[in-house]
Design a protein around this nucleic acid. Structure first.
Lengths: 209, 209
DNA sequence: GAACAAAGTTTCCTATTGGAAACTTTTATG
DNA sequence: CATAAAAGTTTCCAATAGGAAACTTTGTTC
């Protein structure tokens, strides 16, 4: 399982931090990678040659690890094959949630309480994931319930599921959001959400570092 | 690969693809980058040479853009200087949605239609974002409406907003999800969502590469 | 299963990289 | 500001990358 400790600070901060660990780029044989990309796109060496401006023989040799391409050549490969350069030596996707699936039925998430929010953490069975989704019931009614801005690494997506909230941010005017409305923002910018409806509002939050 | 063709085929692929552009790694002169890294670490060419196992002269020439290093050399640079390889040709990786915020009111997203889904793309004003949120009305009723698995880079979070759907995945038993239920999964694993309620179901999808 | 075409590999050669050492520039020190 | 040491650059050459064309393998058609 994932985070045990910092759970108590700012929930969303916890959330973001729990993802800190990963993201190392383990480089991999460039030849196999290139061949995989080319064949996946159903290109012959000849066609790849045309697109990249490199000789057929050169491509063959790279694919068979007979030579180590120069950076210049790698750039030609990337632009010619319309891929990002790191794709040439990066595993298709470092193991994050590989082949995994985690269902969270309504109300079955792991709950986490603070004075301002009541969080229901979702998909907690999968660690190392890129996104951290959770539903929150918003108790807070004003900035003062927090005392200061909430701020943390990453980006956040927020969808109002029920009720109406107001999103306060450091650089923008407050904005009211009703059920169905959503907002995407940089979480390093001070932000908080308060409820402005009769009952506490319910929102979905997804954070990514 | 650049075939714009599949636009109509796999909706989520389309969506994922639309992030490809955004995530663009604009490569940058490798020499200046290397020099910046070396000097920032207060290393002389001699010291850098020791660490990387490359000749002083080679380093000098790379820094001055007199030669284009081979991939092998780039790997030695990365391991020797204890950096990630892409750092050699990638700008410091600025924060993506820095200080930005994008509100999407209910029903105001950019729509995108396919035979199986009706997508409403959200937060389209912010480019370069880590997550791609969209609401989808699910028309599909069976696997055959797709013909084959949907598969793409990244991870996906799915929350059922209305109705009931069935999530079919390559490695798991199908699972039924009603409003409020959600699931997180590796999108490289074949997956699709079909509606099992009277009317088309409405879901929220958030993808991260 | 010939005969041919298409895709992929290897050879051969030229151009360029990478290392050792000579050379130049910068910095430190009296 | 002369001198020495350290840092950086350039030269020279051997090793290797990259391109053109020959060659081999795989696939297609009759």
């Amino acid at each position: 399982m994932n985070d045990k400790v910092k759970e108590d600070v700012y929930p969303s901060m916890t959330v973001a931090d729990s993802q800190n660990e990963v993201r190392a780029v383990n480089t991999v044989a460039i030849g196999a990678q290139l061949k995989a990309i080319r064949t996946k796109n159903k290109l012959t060496l000849e066609e790849a040659s045309k697109r990249t401006g490199l000789a057929r023989s050169t491509l063959s040799k790279i694919e068979n690890e007979q030579i180590s391409p120069t950076f210049t050549v790698m750039q030609k490969l990337a632009t010619g094959l319309d891929i990002e350069l790191p794709q040439l030596f990066t595993k298709p996707q470092a193991i994050q949630a590989t082949g995994r699936r985690d269902v969270t039925l309504a109300g079955q998430g792991r709950s986490h309480l603070t004075s301002t929010y009541e969080h229901e953490l979702l998909a907690t069975q999968i660690s190392n994931k890129k996104m951290m989704p959770y539903k929150s019931r918003v108790h807070a009614r004003s900035f003062d319930d927090f005392g200061e801005w909430v701020r943390h690494q990453g980006e956040e997506y927020l969808l109002v599921l029920d009720g109406e909230v107001q999103l306060l941010t450091e650089f923008y005017e407050p904005v009211n959001l009703a059920a169905g409305d959503s907002v995407y923002y940089d979480a390093t910018m001070g932000h908080l959400v308060v409820s402005v409806s009769e009952e506490d509002a319910l929102i979905l939050w997804v954070t990514a570092k």
